[in-house]
């Protein structure tokens, strides 16, 4: 949906992930960018250069926070310190919505720094939804949860990933950050039809979309974010916006990062799909 409760009723277009190698270019050239996605944890610090950069960015751009360590799916309770710092940042950036992953990653206060897949059970869905609700109420900002790419499935699972995602977001009454590339990567690793996934999530809850590049190996596909978006993912993206409407979209490029222009150019390709989709809808 273009604007909905899950993205703070905003109509954002194509965004870029704010990454250190581009700081100098952005601060000096001030390129026209619709919005920047920042990794919350990189700015949940007490002072210094990161916050100075953020200040300058906030003066000129719209910023949306994307987290990597809330771990809604960890059996652990929330890390209080993490939540407190996150709230401070939310107030600071005034992010219209906030996203993090539908995954787990810490146990007993020890961190894997990874986005680990969940067993798709009703009990786990209930627990995860409760944590998302708690975070939303505490942080006072809409939350979109992102589907992760995965390389393993559990015997314990009682449903498909898209059924699990739907179950969680319905129970939490939260939004979805639909990562089209992650769906593709997981569909390759777990032999499912990615379009069945796209067609069977609650479309009215999609607040944002991620696209990215991945790498194919002999026996599995890895979510590497280190090159342009591949064709099957663009096709899925076109299908996704046909279903959910013109939605805030972000290109993720996190490794072997090329020049800012190159990343931006790649991201703007998404506009072509949006325009085609709008033309089809109009005719």
């Amino acid at each position: 949906m273009p604007a909905n409760a899950f993205n703070g009723f905003t109509e954002y277009g194509i965004g870029i992930g704010l990454r250190v190698p581009h700081y100098r270019h952005i601060l000096a050239k001030k390129p026209v960018v619709d919005w920047f996605e920042i990794i919350s944890e990189n700015f949940m610090v007490d002072g210094g250069r990161p916050l100075e950069v953020l200040d300058t960015i906030l003066e000129q751009y719209r910023v949306v926070q994307h987290g990597v360590a809330s771990y809604f799916g960890s059996a652990d309770k929330f890390d209080r310190e993490h939540l407190k710092r996150l709230k401070r940042l939310v107030k600071y950036t005034n992010t219209p919505w906030l996203s993090d992953h539908l995954c787990w990653g810490s146990v007993d206060g020890r961190y894997t720094h990874d986005l680990l897949p969940m067993p798709y059970t009703f009990a786990v869905a209930r627990h995860t939804a409760e944590k998302i609700r708690f975070a939303r109420d505490y942080l006072e900002v809409p939350i979109c949860v992102e589907n992760v790419s995965s390389y393993a499935e559990y015997h314990a699972s009682e449903m498909t990933e898209w059924e699990f995602l739907s179950e969680v977001v319905e129970q939490a009454d939260c939004g979805i950050l639909l990562d089209v590339n992650n769906i593709y990567v997981s569909s390759q690793n777990h032999n499912f039809d990615p379009y069945e996934y796209l067609n069977n999530v609650p479309h009215h809850r999609v607040g944002q979309i991620h696209i990215a590049g991945h790498s194919k190996f002999e026996k599995y596909t890895l979510d590497t974010h280190d090159h342009p978006v591949l064709d099957p993912v663009w096709k899925m993206y076109a299908h996704a916006i046909q279903r959910v409407g013109n939605t805030a979209t972000l290109l993720e490029w996190d490794d072997r990062i090329p020049s800012f222009e190159e990343v931006h150019h790649e991201a703007l390709k998404a506009n072509e799909f949006r325009d085609t989709q709008l033309a089809t809808t109009a005719s």
Partner: peptide, 17 residues
């Protein structure tokens, strides 16, 4: 706890992580 698939056994899938 980890399902194998047609290309990787449980060990190999856990090994990726």
């Amino acid at each position: 706890f980890i399902k194998p698939n047609d290309r990787l056994n449980s060990f190999e899938r856990l090994e990726i992580y």
